[in-house]
Amino acid sequence: MRHRLSAWLAPQRPATPEPIDDPARRRVLIIELIIVFAITLGLSGVRSLLSLVDALLRPEPLGEQRVAINAPQATMDLIDLLKQLLSVVQLLGWGALGAYLLVRGGMRLAEVGLDRRRPGRDLRLGVGLTALIGLPGLALYLVGWQLGLNLAVQPSTLDETWWRPITLTLAAFGNSFAEEMLVVGYLLTRLRQLGSGENSALLIAAVLRGSYHLYQGIGGFVGNLIMGLVFGRVWQRTNRLWPLIVAHTLLDVVAFVGYAFLRDRVTWLP
Results as ranks from 00 to 15, higher is better:
R2G: 00
H3N: 12
R13K: 14
A15E: 15
P19V: 13
D22M: 10
A24S: 11
R25E: 15
L29K: 13
I30Q: 12
E32D: 15
I34D: 07
I35S: 02
I39L: 14
T40M: 07
L43I: 00
G45Q: 06
V46L: 15
S48E: 06
S48L: 06
S51E: 13
S51A: 15
L52K: 08
L52H: 08
A55E: 12
L56V: 10
P59W: 04
L62S: 04
L62I: 09
G63I: 02
G63Q: 10
G63D: 12
Q65V: 12
Q73N: 05
M76H: 11
D77V: 10
D77E: 11
D77P: 03
L78H: 02
L82H: 01
S87C: 00
V89K: 01
Q90C: 00
L91E: 02
G93D: 06
W94H: 05
G95Y: 02
L97Q: 08
A99D: 03
A99W: 02
L101C: 09
L102I: 05
L102H: 03
L102N: 01
R104S: 13
M107S: 07
L109E: 01
A110T: 14
A110V: 04
E111D: 14
V112T: 07
G113T: 02
G113E: 05
G113P: 05
D115Y: 01
R117S: 14
R121V: 11
R121G: 03
R124K: 11
G126D: 10
G128S: 12
G128N: 11
A131G: 14
A131R: 00
I133Q: 07
L135P: 11
Y141A: 11
L142P: 00
G144T: 08
W145L: 15
W145Q: 13
W145C: 00
Q146M: 08
G148S: 09
L149S: 03
L149E: 07
Q154S: 05
S156E: 06
L158N: 04
D159M: 05
W163C: 06
R164I: 03
R164V: 08
P165H: 08
L168W: 04
L168T: 03
F173V: 12
S176P: 02
F177P: 07
A178S: 15
E179Q: 09
L182D: 04
G185A: 14
L187N: 12
T189D: 08
L191H: 09
L194I: 12
E198W: 04
N199S: 10
A201H: 06
L202F: 06
L203S: 05
A205Y: 01
A206I: 03
A206V: 08
L208Y: 06
R209F: 15
R209M: 15
R209K: 12
R209T: 08
H213K: 05
H213T: 02
H213F: 08
G219P: 11
G219F: 07
F221C: 06
N224H: 15
L225S: 07
L225H: 03
I226V: 15
L229V: 14
V234N: 03
R237D: 05
T238E: 10
T238K: 14
N239F: 00
R240N: 01
L241V: 07
L241R: 08
P243H: 03
A247W: 03
T249W: 13
L251K: 00
G258W: 08
G258T: 07
G258F: 05
Y259F: 15
Y259G: 05
A260D: 15
A260K: 01
F261D: 08
F261N: 00
F261L: 15
F261M: 14
R263A: 12
D264I: 00
D264C: 01
V266R: 01
T267F: 05
P270C: 11
